[in-house]
Design a protein around this nucleic acid. Structure first.
Lengths: 205, 205
DNA sequence: CCTATGACATAACATCCGTTACGTAACAAC
DNA sequence: GTTGTTACGTAACGGATGTTATGTCATAGG
């Protein structure tokens, strides 16, 4: 009984290719259009190959989800640490916006994944943790970009910025014609300048 | 051949009941969990009754969508016209946030509908028009709440507010534990006070 | 009363889905 | 070469789905 192990394919690479096919299918047809056959067609292979690398549909989705999460996290991690605090804040914000085709697809897929999280308690916990981490990072960036001492509503400003970014990204993706990247940048500029305001105007109740 | 027309049921009422069943199913199981049988079960009837009042699944979805749209539009329309400009602006913003169970469900369903718009060009046009109208209304409210003369970035501020509201609503709905209504109100207060700021702080690039 | 019609329930239908089983070819160890 | 394992493609399976057909009952007009 020999231990013959003929392994000439890069399994991780295949899995990634299929995950990317999942992204494309989700972006084009939504979660209810995500079928193994559609994924196989988008990946240019057969359903047999998909089931060969993933136990079942849930495993495929989990992998596609985690890969997307890593992809976005890596982009956050790769942000330049140099430059002024304002520059670093703006860079972090821009990477969360669908300013090019790649981020456009990411935004669509991420929106679908985020919404579908509601159906699975475990996914919800995972998402909540990731979101809290994102809020923490934004809070730090906003604090660094503001003059000392930090304002008492720092956390609210960070939350405001996070919500703004998510909303703008989704609006840009569900109504692409109305949100060219140039408008997105202009609105971001306005929002950042408001967030970094120190002297308050007339207060809202 | 008599013209017997025994019509003792209110068809509009039935259709609304089934549309509300659609909302509940979409909120609980997402778009891919929306089946005629699930809708019938949620409405407490049979699939035969559903097909009796709607030609096919698409007609059912269209009606549920349009009813939800009217419901949200009516709420906007019912906003108090009295009070200060700031009060009217805040009221308009609060009705867009999931501060109670009713608006929570509305937000979830609306998010699903908004995302699924991408798969249908006609729905996309409809959504774009509604969104533009919403932006216009917000712009007017912000202008009224700001001292004259209006700032040059008025439209950007309105877009910023619209994106913020959408994002906060979605965050609150995908991570309910982290966004109690009290936090939503606090963040809204901060955002509104920033939006209504006239004296600018350090500008972001 | 009688009949036509609307308001349903029930059930059958083809289709599509996820899953699983089976078959084949390629390659490493012996 | 032989063998055993991996890497697929093909196809079949039961179940779920949207749709359609059929049946039943109540009711309003004649």
């Amino acid at each position: 009984m020999g231990d013959a192990v003929p392994k000439q394919v890069d399994q991780a690479e295949r899995r990634q290719a299929m995950s990317e096919a999942v992204w494309r299918v989700v972006a084009e047809r939504g979660m209810d259009g995500l079928t193994l056959r559609a994924v196989a067609a988008a990946a240019g292979c057969t359903t047999g190959m998909v089931t060969h690398y993933f136990r079942d549909k849930k495993a495929l989705l989990t992998h596609a989800r985690s890969l997307m999460h890593h992809r976005m996290a890596d982009r956050v991690e790769a942000l330049a640490a140099h430059g002024s605090a304002q520059d670093r804040l703006r860079s972090a914000c821009e990477q969360a916006l669908p300013l090019d085709d790649e981020r456009h697809l990411e935004t669509v897929v991420w929106a679908h994944f985020q919404l579908s999280v509601r159906a699975d308690p475990e996914l919800l916990r995972h998402h909540a943790a990731a979101h809290a981490s994102w809020i923490r990072r934004l809070t730090g960036l906003v604090r660094d970009a503001l003059p000392h001492p930090e304002p008492p509503d720092l956390h609210e400003r960070a939350h405001s910025l996070a919500a703004f970014l998510d909303g703008l990204a989704i609006n840009a993706v569900t109504d692409p014609g109305a949100y060219p990247s140039e408008l997105q940048r202009r609105v971001l500029t306005t929002h950042l300048s408001l967030i970094l305001t120190t002297a308050k105007g007339p207060a809202a109740p």
